[in-house]
Design a protein around this nucleic acid. Structure first.
Lengths: 262, 262
DNA sequence: CGTTGAATTGACACCGTTCAACGACAGTGG
DNA sequence: CCACTGTCGTTGAACGGTGTCAATTCAACG
């Protein structure tokens, strides 16, 4: 991962631990060259709004973004993005977004003009297919969230979000076996899990007192990974990881094997 | 729609009321010719299982399919497909599925071998982009479901599922202003909404007694469309109906209403 | 006419929301 | 240095939506 980032500082995490190994050096260089500009934000920032017309897509380099659907009374976070994610790639084919895109904390992201993407689609079918794969990965995560929303109670949902983030971050070379850092607050967690912030607070306390995970703004510490995954009924298959890379061995042998078996 | 089906009996509903108008006659013919075989099922049938490797994709011609994620104890329906949907197109890029695909009632679906899809992707960038669009549409629907799961109580969720189905069916020329027919049971509805079947039953009764909608196996009758949409807080923008991509107005409420009116 | 899956009903416990306060902490300006 | 301010986190009590358990009725169909 270190060499990858040295060579491709902006896009080196794209599909890391997934299909990045299937990219040729030329494709990696092409992707890196697609980035026209790099921007950064600090604190809560709305990058794009529902209904906006898109002429470029963004690839997340540092920090976190959320996909938000809100109306007069409520606010839901329907997706999380971590570094390496081609965040609104789907804006290219959809032309307009069905949700807002919001940055949290300090972020850095690259701008990729759609005209350049069009070239890639027409001349680089293999890379095009990897881009497509990236957007399908998001859809797979949406589906897993839907199933977890339906079957898990408050603590389980929270445990699942934390576990997924942990896995996804480690896939792109961030965080470590003891935890990771994020700008997420308990209110954010409430919007992700479809719970009131009061109940999130109680559940977070339960997880801390049960010595499962210590969630706090800035730092999430995993205290008991097995228990955490059990509470979340976590099965990483839906993340489409390549069981062999950084993730599989370090995080969960069984899960990795299960994943490999499929 | 009638002429379209006469000319393209298997794929004539693909992206109807969305981007189908952007397809050339040649593209429509090509798509129709991709169908290698037609199969049919009767009653509850699992078409594909989570983890299966895919060598072909299926396009739904008649009937309904569900995307299912289940474990030892629970079962969730994380997606619904109606005629015209290129159901597991994403199996092409993902290689294996993260969920099961189940048919309900009587269905008819076309088989499209992945080798043929590969040709299309390499030689028909425009059609490829429409295929991509189709999978992104599913993702958009997933997101809307997530937001509704988070913010709506039981009756609202049920109202939303019914309203969405009604809209989607009418987009592909099925159902009418008074309702539509489906094989869904109350238990199915429970799996879709993340509720117990008992509570679904109570909520369905409330909707019927409130003269909003009469849900019963086989036939759903819309009694008060305005009230229904209000309870579901339904905004059809996320379905990317006609007028959205070109005119740029699908992502506001009035445009959706207009579309429904015709 | 009996069988079977689907729909229905009632009682009761519990999870999560709501309302209302309070506490902890960092940044800011006097 | 301290008061002020805003954000985030924390706690308690009461209410109500939903799940669970257990039975019963209904409808379709061979």
């Amino acid at each position: 991962m270190r060499e990858e980032l040295a060579q491709f500082p902006m896009t080196g995490r794209f599909l890391a631990s997934r299909l990045r190994h299937a990219m040729t050096a030329l494709e990696k260089e092409l992707l890196e060259s697609l980035v026209d500009d790099v921007r950064e934000t600090n604190g809560y920032t709305k990058i794009l709004s529902r209904g906006d017309f898109c002429e470029y897509s963004t690839i997340l380099i540092k920090g976190f973004m959320t996909r938000v659907i809100e109306d007069e009374t409520d606010r839901s976070i329907v997706g999380l993005q971590v570094p390496g994610d081609f965040v609104d790639l789907h804006g290219f084919a959809l032309k307009r977004l069905d949700h807002d895109l919001c940055a949290l904390g300090y972020t850095q992201f690259g701008i990729v003009p759609h005209e350049r993407l069009r070239d890639v689609l027409e001349n680089e079918p293999h890379l095009a297919r990897l881009f497509w794969f990236g957007t399908l990965l998001d859809a797979s995560i949406h589906r897993e969230w839907l199933s977890k929303m339906a079957r898990l109670r408050a603590v389980g949902r929270i445990a699942h979000v934390i576990t997924e983030l942990w896995y996804r971050l480690r896939m792109v070379g961030l965080g470590n076996s003891s935890g990771f850092t994020t700008p997420f607050t308990q209110v954010d967690l409430a919007h992700i899990c479809g719970l009131s912030e009061i109940h999130v607070n109680r559940s977070v306390r339960d997880l801390r007192e049960g010595e499962v995970v210590d969630f706090r703004r800035g730092r999430i510490t995993i205290l008991n990974a097995d228990r955490l995954k059990e509470m979340a009924r976590f099965n990483p298959a839906y993340l489409y990881g390549e069981g062999g890379l950084e993730v599989g061995s370090a995080l969960n042998k069984e899960a990795g094997e299960r994943q490999m078996a499929k």
